[in-house]
Structure formats: C-alpha cells, structure tokens
Computed example of a mutant assay.
Amino acid sequence: MNKSMYLSLDFPTWKEAKAFIDRYEFHGVPVKVGMELFYREGPHVIEKLKEANHAIFLDLKLHDIPTTVMKAMKNIAQLEVDMVNVHALGGSEMIQRAKDGLVSGSTADHVTKLIAVTVLTSMDDEALNSELRIPGSLNDNVLHLADLSKQNGADGVVCSVHEAKAIKHICGASFLTVTPGIRLGDSDVNDQKRVATPKIAKESGADILVLGRTITKATDPRKAYNKVSEEWQHELKS
C-alpha cells in the first residue's frame, strides 16, 4: 500500500463514498476522511474503511482549549488511524496536549501521527494580513507554525507544496510535509490559492499528497488518479 498518496473522500455519506470507491476501483488505497463525512457517519465510517484495508488520515483540524483537545485525541487514538490533525494556531500547549492524548489513548503497537495545519491552502498574504490581521508574510507564518509544531510534539504539518522545502530545512528531513492543493496540468484550481503538480510537489520535498477534487471531480477519476501516481512515482524514482 502506497501511503504517500491519500484520496479525499469528500462525500456527505458513507453510501456515496463507498459507491465512488467501488465504481472506480479505489479498494485499499489510503484515504482522507474530513469533517463532512465524519460528522455525518462518525467512527462507523472509520471502522468500515479499516475493514477494507484503507490507511486513513482523519482530517478534523481540531482547535480548542488544550484540555478539550487532549480528551478528544484520547478517544481518536482508539480508532487507530494513521494520522489526525490540529490547527497549529491553537498554540504550543494545545499541540502538546493533543500529542499527550494520542499517546495515552493508543495501544502499544500503534500510535497515530499528529499533524498540525499551518495556514490553509485557500489563504494568501492578503487574507492573512487584512482579514485575520496576522502580520508578516504567509511564508514566514507557515515556517514559524511548522517549527512551533515540531517543538511541541507534532510529527509533521499540513502545508502547501511551496513551503515544504523550507520546512524540511528548518524542521529536518523526518518531519512530515502533508500537501493538499495537488493539481494536474489541466485541473481547475477551484478555491485553492497555493497549488502545484505532483512533479513540483516531489521536487519541493513533499512527503504525502492529499488528492481531492483533481480526482473526485475528474471526468475519469481512476485515470486521473493513475496519472498523478505515475507522475509522483516517477519523481520518487528519479
């Protein structure tokens, strides 16, 4: 199983997600389960996916007071997914407590990796400075949040491809860079601002691709997935 590509199951129900998996023969591929599907189906959807041998990135982006996040993570740990995330903007104590919850709630043979979201790939400098009133460049903020996340126990961050190389330089080669916003050359950008092709992603030091609408909204999702995989694997071997 190639755990460097996670297919986003951005569907409102398990019935629709399963139909998509079955129709395009995505059996056993690593998947991302986000808020839309998890809030409708709950842990049941994780159990079903695990029964079908899918690796899982649970994309809930937790952001709350440290104690609440710790208790939530203790419960999430029992689902034994591969990765789960928090918002790095929750701060150092929240990240630490999230990690504590995952570790204390895990079994001896499985500890879920903690990934922190730096700045959403739908954001740009203008939105960060003008709307959120966070000073400094988007790039500087991403690097600061990545370093903060590592120092407080995170195993990696969600970032755009364009920040992955600099994050590796600051946080080290083993610190995971999980990159959404992946597009093929003929794909729509949609509401993402910081996008890149699989080739650019690998050249930039990305470890894990998150594949959303470039696959799910493609005319032929299986063909699009294979195209991404071929481009990504070619870069891994070159």
Results as ranks from 00 to 15, higher is better:
1 M>K: 15
1 M>W: 14
1 M>R: 15
3 K>W: 01
5 M>W: 05
7 L>P: 05
7 L>A: 11
9 L>T: 05
12 P>M: 12
14 W>K: 07
15 K>N: 09
17 A>T: 08
17 A>N: 09
23 R>F: 01
24 Y>R: 06
24 Y>N: 08
26 F>S: 03
32 K>Q: 08
33 V>H: 07
33 V>K: 02
34 G>N: 04
35 M>G: 09
36 E>Y: 06
39 Y>F: 11
40 R>Y: 05
42 G>T: 11
44 H>A: 12
44 H>V: 10
45 V>G: 00
48 K>L: 13
50 K>T: 11
51 E>V: 02
51 E>D: 12
54 H>S: 07
55 A>W: 13
56 I>Q: 08
56 I>G: 13
56 I>C: 12
58 L>A: 03
59 D>R: 10
59 D>P: 04
60 L>W: 11
61 K>I: 04
62 L>E: 05
62 L>T: 01
65 I>Q: 11
71 K>Y: 01
71 K>M: 01
72 A>H: 02
73 M>D: 07
76 I>A: 12
76 I>Y: 11
76 I>D: 08
78 Q>W: 12
78 Q>I: 01
82 D>S: 11
84 V>I: 14
86 V>T: 06
89 L>D: 08
92 S>R: 13
95 I>N: 07
98 A>C: 12
100 D>Q: 13
101 G>H: 03
103 V>I: 15
105 G>W: 04
106 S>E: 03
108 A>V: 06
109 D>Q: 10
110 H>R: 14
110 H>D: 10
114 L>H: 12
114 L>Q: 09
115 I>W: 10
118 T>K: 09
119 V>A: 08
119 V>S: 09
120 L>C: 05
120 L>E: 03
121 T>R: 15
122 S>H: 11
123 M>T: 03
124 D>L: 00
125 D>H: 00
126 E>M: 08
126 E>W: 08
127 A>T: 10
128 L>M: 14
129 N>Y: 00
134 I>H: 09
136 G>V: 02
136 G>P: 02
138 L>E: 02
139 N>G: 00
139 N>F: 08
139 N>Y: 02
140 D>Q: 07
142 V>S: 10
144 H>T: 04
144 H>Y: 13
145 L>P: 08
146 A>M: 10
147 D>L: 10
148 L>M: 14
149 S>I: 10
150 K>C: 03
151 Q>H: 07
153 G>K: 02
153 G>H: 05
154 A>K: 02
157 V>C: 02
159 C>F: 06
162 H>D: 06
164 A>Q: 05
165 K>V: 00
168 K>G: 11
169 H>G: 06
169 H>N: 15
172 G>V: 10
172 G>R: 13
173 A>Q: 15
173 A>G: 02
174 S>N: 13
174 S>F: 01
177 T>W: 14
182 I>D: 04
186 D>H: 14
188 D>F: 10
189 V>W: 03
190 N>K: 15
193 K>V: 09
194 R>A: 01
195 V>P: 06
196 A>G: 10
199 K>P: 00
199 K>D: 15
200 I>K: 15
201 A>G: 07
209 L>S: 05
209 L>H: 03
211 L>F: 02
217 K>G: 10
226 N>D: 15
230 E>D: 14
232 W>M: 04
232 W>H: 05
233 Q>V: 01
237 K>G: 01
